[in-house]
Design a protein around this nucleic acid. Structure first.
Length: 372
RNA sequence: GCGAAAUUGGUGAAGUGGUUAACACGCCGGAUUGUGGCUCCGGUAUGCGUGGGUUCGAUUCCCACAUUUCGCC
């Protein structure tokens, strides 16, 4: 079956929404933060650890799994869930972000996008049809349309042409889509231009996707610009379908965009920051490598319910990170992911209580205020 | 006891008779938003063993001393 989104409640004072998504691999509440597992693993975490941080759904990547191990291997294993031993929902990104991060923009054609395999230099060509075909085989719960993630800044004419092409790609992907247990999302692009965001959203809605996402944000613009891009996109999306904001995961951005009606987020930062020694806390981000933590035998956060905080001290984790021990990355990843997921849990409570603005103000006072 | 070589930051070290003493590691900070995991960007010796001397000027040349290493008794 397709995913089923239920809108349970709207917050009184903002566009924030409480919802539930049912999938073939269980259900989860929204707003929700989705940890990133590009290569069919959330780096350093086992599926059991992902369960323990309350991850409702994880994200994986079409482009990277296409190169290694190849979609046929995953398919032969019985699909991505069985392959990686994760029995919760999975969303696969289409490779659209790799158009932005790995491909040469000048080489994009109507047909698709040429890539150089970063592992062995082979010439590759990804098309909307190919991306969908790979995702059908990976058998994720939610597949994404193949799009061009546009950078910032970008000229109006470039964005206009790109959006129209992304719409044609969305249609082409939808036409070949063939997996009744999988859902397909369209991606709203359009840069900073409201008429283009609107055009893109409206055309996607006409095509009737199972859900919609907003792309082309967090590519170098200011936070205020990002929030505007989200506003000018959600405005034209139907209330009865889920909305996913791609690549956004800074705590304050999650709050601001939940307020603007976003249901799902994903971001590499909790795990990447963890590998580089950073941890989110109520009072801002800390760098565990700082000398001041050398003999700090308290947990990262006193009231955190994560495995790392319940069992380990900052001094010990600092030591592990300093020595490049993987347990350090793992403990910080567990903490950071749990932090963001708990943030979405708190936001759900705030939506129930209709006090999300107050929640945001208090959060900002703590997060940006003076430490301790 | 005799002879030789060496002595530069936390470490390994490069280097020059004349503005700010290379580089690497470490250390101290910072960055990181649909992941090309262990990356990127800053900062880090007011001083070149100690004391003299030569010189306009010495970390660089000379002398003495100290320390270390190697060889020979």
């Amino acid at each position: 079956m397709k995913i089923q989104y239920s809108l349970l409640k709207k917050e009184e004072n903002t566009n924030a929404r409480l919802g539930k998504i049912k999938t073939n691999y269980g259900e989860f509440d929204t707003p929700m933060f989705m940890p990133v597992g590009t290569l069919a693993t959330v780096k350093t975490l086992s599926p059991e650890e992902l369960k323990n941080v309350n991850a409702g759904i994880i994200l994986s990547n079409t482009y990277h799994l296409w190169l290694r191990p190849g979609e046929d291997i995953v398919n032969k294993a019985g699909g991505l869930h069985k392959f990686m031993n994760w029995d919760g929902p999975i969303l696969t990104d289409s490779g659209g972000y790799q158009v932005f991060s790995l491909a040469n923009k000048e080489n994009i054609t109507e047909e698709g996008v040429p890539f150089k395999n970063h592992l062995n230099g082979d010439s590759l060509f990804l098309t909307p049809e190919k991306s969908i075909e790979i995702q059908n085989k990976l058998d994720s719960d939610i597949a994404m349309s193949f799009d061009e993630c546009i950078g910032y800044p970008a000229e109006y004419d470039y964005v206009k042409n790109s959006v129209d092409r992304t719409l044609r790609w969305a249609k082409r992907g939808k036409d070949v889509f063939n997996n009744e247990n999988q859902s397909l999302f369209g991606i709203v692009q359009g840069g900073v231009y409201e008429d283009l965001r609107r055009h893109c959203a409206e055309e996607l809605v006409k095509m009737d996707f199972d859900g919609y996402s907003i792309g082309g944000t967090s590519v170098g613009e200011t936070k205020e610009t990002m929030y505007k891009m989200v506003e000018m996109s959600t405005k034209y999306l139907p209330e009865n379908k889920v909305r996913y904001l791609m690549g956004v995961g800074d705590p304050i951005d999650i709050i601001e965009n939940v307020i603007r009606g976003i249901d799902i987020f994903d971001c590499v930062s909790p795990t990447r920051l963890a590998r580089h020694g950073h941890a989110y806390t109520k009072y801002g981000k800390i760098n565990i490598k700082n000398a001041k933590f050398k003999d700090d035998f308290s947990p990262i956060e006193n009231n955190c319910d994560c495995y790392a905080c319940k069992n380990y001290t900052k001094a010990y984790i600092r030591h592990l990170i300093t020595c490049n021990e993987t347990l350090g990355s793992r403990l910080l990843s567990i903490h950071n992911i749990r932090y963001l997921i708990r943030l979405t849990e708190d936001l759900r409570k705030a939506i129930k209580n209709d006090n999300i603005i107050e929640y945001k103000e208090e959060f900002k006072r703590n997060y940006y205020g003076k430490e301790n």
